Simulated assay, not measured.
Amino acid sequence: MHALAGGGRRMTRRATLADVARRAGVSVSTASRALHRPGRVSAGTTARVQQAADELGYVPSAAARQVRSGRSGTVALVVPDLTNPFFMALVRGSTRHLREHDMVQVVADVEEEPRSEEQVLEALAGRVDGIVLAASRLDRAALAAWTRRVPLVAINRDVADVPTVRTGTQGVVAAVEHLHERGHRHVAYARGPATSWSEERRRRAVVETCARLGTRFSDLGHHAPRRDAGPAAADAARRSGASALLAYNDLIAFGALDRLTESGVPVPGELSVVGHDDVFGADLTTPALTTVAVPAEELGARAAARLLAVLDGAGGATGADATSSDPGAELPTRLVVRDSTGPAAR
């Protein structure tokens, strides 16, 4: 790198920390503290060292940063299914936050398989500084054990002493209330994976709200969280006699709309449909899908921030700030009403 050295002489090599220290008139150790731990030196010294670094074009090497910090500068995000737009939004949010903190993220897709999840965690342990585990399908004991092995933050789980961020069920409650207001007295719910913590939480919200409103509830059983599971959910909803179908996620709802369109069933005339997540394309279906909006990018960013706090010792696995008991760890959801819901058929 070409840069001006002291006395106007142009350097023809990459500037080193020693060059910066010499130009700023401080020791190498002081220059290092000023650049990497500015709170430990005076503001004037920090400014002088930073100015020297800028003038010389000094860039600390990644290897040097790793040696000083004992970190790789890399974290991993493990997701159940990258083909699901919801998880791609998580990736965008976490990547953005980590980039702002000079961290690199790698992403692993475990294809909804707990065994694959364990294998990926084994492969990542010791190679990355920490892991964000999205919608983990591991059981509680396994997840807690992994938290003791590697710095880890879970998205949408609730296990004691496991740092977590999660979404609320406000939108699900609002969806059932919305349907009740439109005259629906029998709703069916197409569940998600049996190993999903979010699935059980959403189902409980639907059941409890239906009970409060006096609405009949039909459980359509578990479905894979994919579009190709939607047709079976639509068929089951029609057999149940329900006037409205709530789906575990938008992908199942998309597939349900596909089947209903093929079958000539008017939506919402004969059957109203509600999804969950408000992924890309939810407003482009025919009819546009009423769904529960989840702030997925913010969720990813919040998880990344929590992991960095764990790495810095400010939000460890046993600290209240990082555990499931922290109300700040939950992001609210909301109902977005579009054209796939309407008055119950008479």
Rank of each mutant, 00 (worst) to 15 (best):
S196E: 00
T341M: 02
A18S: 14
G6I: 14
T261V: 05
G319T: 14
R203F: 03
R149D: 08
A303E: 09
D283Q: 13
S136I: 01
R115Y: 00
H97D: 10
R157V: 06
V120Q: 03
S29V: 13
A320W: 10
A322S: 15
L35D: 02
G57R: 01
L284R: 15
R166C: 02
V153N: 09
A288I: 02
S32F: 05
A301I: 10
G342M: 07
A141N: 11
T291R: 07
V26C: 05
A305Q: 13
R259S: 15
A89R: 09
D235K: 14
R14P: 00
F86N: 12
R65S: 12
T318N: 08
R227N: 09
D326N: 15
E298H: 12
R302I: 02
S136F: 09
A224L: 04
G281H: 10
A211N: 08
R13E: 12
L17V: 04
D81E: 13
R212N: 06
G171D: 13
D326H: 12
T147A: 15
G70I: 03
L133Q: 13
R185A: 14
A108L: 03
T45I: 15
V187K: 10
R48P: 00
A242W: 06
R137Q: 13
G328T: 15
R14Y: 09
H222G: 06
G126C: 11
A232N: 04
C210Y: 06
E100T: 12
V110P: 00
V107D: 00
L35R: 05
E181M: 11
G192E: 06
F217N: 03
L289T: 10
V274Y: 06
N84Y: 04
G168L: 09
G93K: 10
A282F: 05
A125E: 14
T30W: 00
A237Y: 05
L4M: 12
